[in-house]
């Protein structure tokens, strides 16, 4: 699908700035945030809570318009939702009045297209949900719901998969299972993945690069390469490299929080109110 040259990033975030208008004043969520995601790359975004991770992801998806800057998909500016971009939301976000089959058909219904049955069957098999098509979301565990949501996001064969803290509500065992599943799917499809998470371990395990955002307003603080071959096993998590990397990222995030008070006057002139939602 991608005809862009190897130089063009899959997703180019260029000085992305987002201001929310709230009842108590404007809220600067993203401040000139820049980042390139290469084709077939898995990039995780971590940062203190409320740092604008989700805002960045929603802007990449075209669901939110940026106040300033631009986000490019294959070199073209994203101005609205795009079929090449699939999203996996927090909490699965399945429609409770539809069974799994109908949930997975939902994107096709909206687009007025015929669902690609063979591809969907392949995906359902891949995530281990064969034979669950007639079940309703409430009849499935949290992990199974999120698997179904992944199938729904991949059903339209997107070239970019945006995942917004998809496994935050799952227990740690299910989470590890899901992380393996994401890697398997990536090995299968080579879809570019942008993954938002609170868990540094999850970010390191999954990603080629881990991006650390600053406290609000979100800006890229650091980017770490994670040079492990795939498929990865959980054993890499016990290596010294991973241990050191985890600690450095943790320090980046925790250290970020401390000088916050000093940093504040800088933005006072811009009349920015900091509140946490």
């Amino acid at each position: 699908m991608s005809t862009a040259s190897a130089r063009t990033p899959k997703l180019g975030v260029q000085a992305a700035t987002k201001v929310y208008q709230t009842g108590s004043g404007d809220l600067l969520a993203l401040d000139r945030c820049s980042l390139d995601v290469q084709p077939n790359e898995i990039v995780s975004i971590v940062g203190p809570s409320g740092c604008g991770k989700t805002t960045l992801l929603w802007s990449m998806s075209g669901l939110h318009r940026l106040t300033g800057g631009a986000i490019l998909l294959d070199g073209n500016e994203i101005t609205g939702p795009r079929p090449e971009i699939g999203i996996v939301f927090q909490e699965a976000n399945l429609l409770p009045w539809r069974n799994l089959d109908a949930n997975i058909n939902f994107p096709f219904e909206i687009k007025g297209e015929k669902p690609d049955r063979a591809w969907i069957a392949h995906l359902l098999h891949r995530v281990g949900l064969d034979g669950f098509g007639g079940k309703f979301p409430r009849e499935l565990s949290g992990g199974m719901q999120q698997r179904a949501a992944i199938v729904r996001a991949l059903a339209l064969k997107p070239s970019v998969l945006l995942m917004d803290e998809p496994f935050g509500a799952l227990d740690s065992f299910t989470r590890e299972e899901m992380n393996h599943l994401v890697e398997e799917i990536w090995l299968d499809t080579k879809t570019t993945i942008v993954f938002i998470t609170h868990s540094i371990e999850e970010a390191i395990f999954l990603s080629d690069r881990v991006v650390v955002l600053t406290t609000r307003p979100g800006r890229v603080a650091k980017i770490y390469d994670v040079p492990f071959a795939r498929p990865r096993s959980l054993e890499i998590m016990a290596t010294k490299e991973v241990f050191d990397l985890t600690n450095r990222i943790k320090m980046d995030i925790v250290g970020e929080r401390r000088p916050q008070a000093k940093e504040q006057p800088e933005h006072k002139s811009a009349e920015i109110v900091r509140i946490r939602p």
């Binding site: 669901l63 939702p81 079929p83 939301f89 927090q90 909490e91 976000n93 429609l95 909206i110």
Partner: peptide, 15 residues
């Protein structure tokens, strides 16, 4: 979140 899901597939207001 559900409305965002629909919008991400380009759903119209009527849809």
């Amino acid at each position: 979140a559900k409305i965002a899901l629909a919008r991400s597939y380009g759903a119209s207001t009527l849809q």
